[in-house]
């Protein structure tokens, strides 16, 4: 963005020295992921691989391995490029975005008036993923706010998740990708979360697909129904990655595959 002078910010703030923005830990029924946690850390963490395979799957397919050493989880979420992989993951998990700052004020200028008249205590806010992604490159964060971290609900027993992405090559944005998180309760699927990457102006939560999974036994027919519902929920635009029809088809296929994998994981049949 900056290299092609699309974005020309007057100042950049290096947050590396701000404590508490980075890290990964499970506590109080959720996984806390600091906004500045590197994607490589998520990808390589045993904790995510074991307990949060949807997140772990997604982290493996963002950009490329070298980029992931520097790129952050918070950046991928807050940049809200419809092609970014983590927004759909957060929707599927029903994650909570944690922000701090001055939601109603413009970004403070480093040298200008704003910096001197800031209230002493910045406000902390929690924003549900469903309310966070408001448009392409737009989120519910105010200009005076930063994302500090994300809370992902810890999965209960019998849960599984998966991320399925079709990319033209390593490093590419998705042609389409599907994030699914679900759990089994009394032999049927409950609390399914299904969300789609790069087939709309924002990541899309496919509620009808969730409905098709919830209450089902996770058999192929239910998955087919969910897949068709997810394809219907997609709002793709034709581009070099494919036609609208093709992208819907990919959503349909990947929904089936991601759901199959999530179910296998929930049943302990797959890693």
């Amino acid at each position: 963005m900056m290299r092609f002078r699309v974005a020309q910010p007057p100042a950049l703030v290096d947050l590396r020295r701000v404590p508490g923005l980075s890290g990964l830990r499970e506590e109080n029924g959720h996984l806390w992921v600091g906004a500045m946690t590197r994607q490589a850390e998520i990808e390589k963490s045993g904790l995510t691989r074991r307990r949060y395979p949807l997140l772990s799957d997604a982290a493996r397919v963002i950009a490329d391995p070298v980029v992931r050493n520097l790129a952050t989880v918070g950046g991928n979420v807050a940049h809200a490029d419809p092609g970014n992989d983590l927004p759909a993951v957060m929707l599927a998990y029903g994650a909570t975005m944690c922000a701090v700052g001055y939601p109603d004020r413009p970004a403070p200028s480093l040298s200008g008036e704003g910096s001197r008249s800031l209230p002493l205590a910045p406000e902390k806010r929690e924003i549900e993923a469903d309310d966070f992604f408001t448009g392409p490159f737009e989120t519910a964060l105010g200009e005076g706010e930063i994302l500090t971290g994300i809370r992902i609900p810890s999965p209960s027993a019998g849960s599984g998740g998966a991320y399925a992405k079709l990319e033209r090559k390593v490093g590419d944005y998705a042609v389409a990708a599907v994030a699914i998180q679900l759990r089994f309760h009394g032999g049927v699927i409950a609390d399914a979360g299904v969300a789609l990457t790069n087939v709309g102006l924002t990541a899309i939560r496919a509620e009808a697909a969730e409905g098709a999974l919830n209450g089902s036994d996770g058999g192929d027919e239910a998955l087919d129904r969910a897949a068709a519902a997810a394809a219907a929920a997609a709002e793709p635009m034709a581009d070099a990655r494919g036609s609208e029809a093709y992208k819907r088809a990919v959503v349909r296929t990947l929904t089936f595959r991601a759901a199959s994998k999530a179910i296998a994981r929930a049943r302990g049949e797959a890693a």
Partner: peptide, 18 residues
């Protein structure tokens, strides 16, 4: 591209969604 192959499959009713 995958899109080209898929279109060939789809036109002939040979695309799968699984």
């Amino acid at each position: 591209t995958p899109q080209r192959v898929w279109s060939l499959l789809d036109e002939r009713g040979a695309a799968l969604y699984r």
